[in-house]
């Protein structure tokens, strides 16, 4: 039913598109909007992928500031409220000789979000300005962002466990702060930014890629 495709060339040049939901390929000209197999929306490239990625990235860039400045948890001890930001929490961990945990928390809640935003922004800029960098290396960077992204949710889980454990006890209790919500927004927007970025654009923007 279909003409055979030539291996080694992008499918878009041969009037073919892959559905990201069901993995079936179909003709671009015959199925401009809907996948003939699973009836999902289909396009040869994710629609407005770059705009979506930038919108989400900019949101993340804005919310990363309150996430780091404001207290992420409050500790209520002897009826005094002790606020804790991401940094002060880290310093407490180091003071208590828990360097290993401090390292995990540092990677998950400071390094990973910043790295994700910078790496995604850099790849998006490379695609936009057609900087002709090695597409394979860009894709490796993207894969790291994609894989590492989910681990920044670690800090939120830790907060929820701390809140549950130090509950009811009149002696010590833990409450989430404003930064917890900001940090959640950073994590979610960067995850969606990576999801909405179409990696095929990396090869499209490269003149040497076939």
């Amino acid at each position: 039913m279909n003409e055979p495709l030539t291996p080694g060339i992008s499918a878009i040049q041969q009037d073919r598109q892959v559905c990201l939901v069901c993995n079936m390929d179909s003709s671009i000209s015959e199925n401009p909007e809907i996948c003939p197999c699973c009836h999902s929306d289909i396009a040869p490239r994710i629609k407005r992928s770059q705009q979506k990625t930038w919108a989400l990235l900019i949101t993340a860039m804005i919310f990363i500031i309150p996430a780091n400045v404001y207290p992420i948890t409050y500790l209520l001890k002897n009826s005094t409220l002790y606020p804790d930001t991401i940094y002060s929490g880290l310093i407490t961990l180091i003071r208590n000789d828990q360097e290993g945990i401090a390292l995990i928390v540092f990677i998950a809640s400071i390094l990973v979000p910043i790295f994700k935003i910078l790496a995604l922004a850099f790849i998006a800029l490379t695609v936009h300005f057609r900087w002709q960098l090695n597409p394979k290396k860009q894709f490796i960077a993207f894969s790291i962002v994609e894989w590492v992204g989910r681990w920044s949710i670690l800090d939120l889980f830790v907060i929820s466990i701390m809140v549950a454990v130090f509950d009811k006890g009149s002696l010590v209790s833990v409450y989430p702060g404003i930064a917890a919500t900001s940090f959640t927004i950073v994590v979610i927007t960067t995850l969606f930014a990576a999801e909405s970025f179409d990696t095929r654009l990396i090869w499209d923007s490269n003149n040497n890629a076939k």
């Binding site: 949710i153 939120l156 907060i159 929820s160 466990i161 809140v163 549950a164 454990v165 130090f166 509950d167 009811k168 006890g169 002696l171 010590v172 409450y175 989430p176 917890a180 919500t181 959640t184 927004i185 994590v187 979610i188």
Partner: peptide, 27 residues
């Protein structure tokens, strides 16, 4: 802690923050 034992489960951990931080709870 000082003679009191408290347990925590996964659902409780998330639901206890619903007033203070609903977005976090949802995620």
């Amino acid at each position: 802690l000082l003679g009191i034992t408290e347990g925590a489960n996964l659902l409780q951990g998330a639901l206890m923050m619903i007033e203070g931080a609903p977005v976090v709870t949802f995620v």
